[in-house]
Nucleic acid binder design. Structure first.
Lengths: 237, 237
DNA sequence: ATGCAGATAATCGTATACAATTTGACCCAC
DNA sequence: GTGGGTCAAATTGTATACGATTATCTGCAT
């Protein structure tokens, strides 16, 4: 799957504008956890980094704020989003709400070649899981999300696809913040089970597995409210 | 319900920035069909209209493009979105996919006072339906959408609420384009039926009614592909 | 030392300026 | 009259400029 999210559906002027490139670059950095929640993203710095003016940097940050990955505070600047536990719960609730429906749509339209593609994704995911090192970890995070995005793409509904892209990206942010164990190590086998259920045309099972899978990811988080814990974290980070 | 969509949840600096005001004003104009699909929204004109520079006008248009209400074409400018029949189908498919889930969540959390509020909305809707004139028609369009938005709000999931706001707004655009009869005249009684089912704790019926309701709205559209009809329309508009 | 007031620096908000691109008009050749 | 080509007007893309706000530092009074 391409790294840029909407490259397939937006048939605009072939060349992506620099604002979009910057947006995508920062988004990738956030999703792959090279940028931690709360990190300040000043317009000047972003502009310098990508050799553009503040105008374009600002536009990119604005775009990311619409996706919920960046929060801009008036007169204070933009920061990598720091989703609250409540927000995290809402993200997973939203996924439980939409993903079964997406799965049903996808299963109804899936072609053998797409199943093949899904299996390939699982293989890649498994390979990355056994590898060591930061780079592999980042790739694993992305691959794990790509499974869900692929289903959304197969469903054929561009609107739901875009929404899923937002939800998956924000999930990554939440896991970075509240995740306890290493990245959903259980996730991979669960993905495989879902594909198997799809192949057996057992949609009800597939949906049930999907809901459980999402709940498992959420269950691996520590979403307790840390009241004045912020200070310590400021040192830790 | 407040007219500005996210006034309740964004607890930012109390005062809305002028960009947001412009965005909301244009969005309202689109949703209430004072701006037709395809209308050009040049940055200069928008800026002059609201007495701000192109910078802010551009930001507002950019924001609307993320919501799917405006399409910006590189080096050509911004236009009120002109959703294709396929896009229209995807919008309603998305609504069928998410609204039952939202309804279930809402029903689980709804309070008597909120039911009261819903009924009040229905009353208002009925009143507007019997009135004559453009103003009433516009208000009816908004009220009809507010019913669905209210359910999303009651569901307590801000993410789904925002998504529904986008879907409802885009639906209005689609109806403006492809609607045949007057605004969903059947809609009002269907809304009432859904509320009744909620009150009777008959969730399955409520969801079924909701799906049918959405399909009814879609069925009232003429989504046949008009191939080279665009030219004639250019004259009609 | 602590706390507050003013100055200083850094950053954001908005407007304006200039380059690049598109659009439409006009003219000419055919 | 049609087709093509050049130029001018309008509009967008991007950078820069300047005022406004916030954050940081300094120094003085307590």
């Amino acid at each position: 799957m391409k790294s840029t999210s909407d490259a397939d559906l937006s048939a605009d002027d072939s060349a992506e504008t620099s604002t979009q490139q910057i947006r995508d670059a920062i988004r990738d950095a956030i999703v792959e956890r090279r940028l931690s929640p709360g990190t300040k993203l000043s317009e000047g710095d972003v502009g310098n980094l990508f050799n553009v003016s503040r105008t374009l940097a600002r536009a990119a940050l604005q775009a990311l704020s619409y996706e919920g990955l960046v929060s801009v505070e008036k007169n204070r600047g933009a920061f990598v989003a720091y989703p609250s536990p409540d927000e995290a719960r809402q993200i997973f609730a939203a996924r439980r709400l939409v993903e079964p429906g997406i799965l049903r749509e996808a299963a109804a339209r899936i072609t053998p070649s797409q199943i093949q593609h899904l299996r390939q994704l699982l293989l890649e995911e498994g390979r990355l899981m056994s590898e060591r090192g930061q780079t592999a970890r980042r790739a694993e995070i992305k691959a794990s999300g790509d499974f869900h995005l692929m289903l959304a793409q197969i469903s054929g509904n561009a609107i739901m696809q875009r929404f899923m892209e937002e939800l998956v990206a924000r999930s990554s942010l939440v896991i970075a913040l509240y995740g306890q164990s290493t990245v959903s190590s259980c996730g991979h086998t669960e993905h495989g089970d879902i594909v198997a259920a799809i192949e057996h045309d057992d949609l009800d099972t597939a949906c049930r597995l999907m809901v459980h899978h999402i709940s498992h990811i959420e269950a691996d988080l520590d979403l307790r409210e840390r009241k004045s814990f912020g200070l310590k974290e400021a040192f830790a980070i």
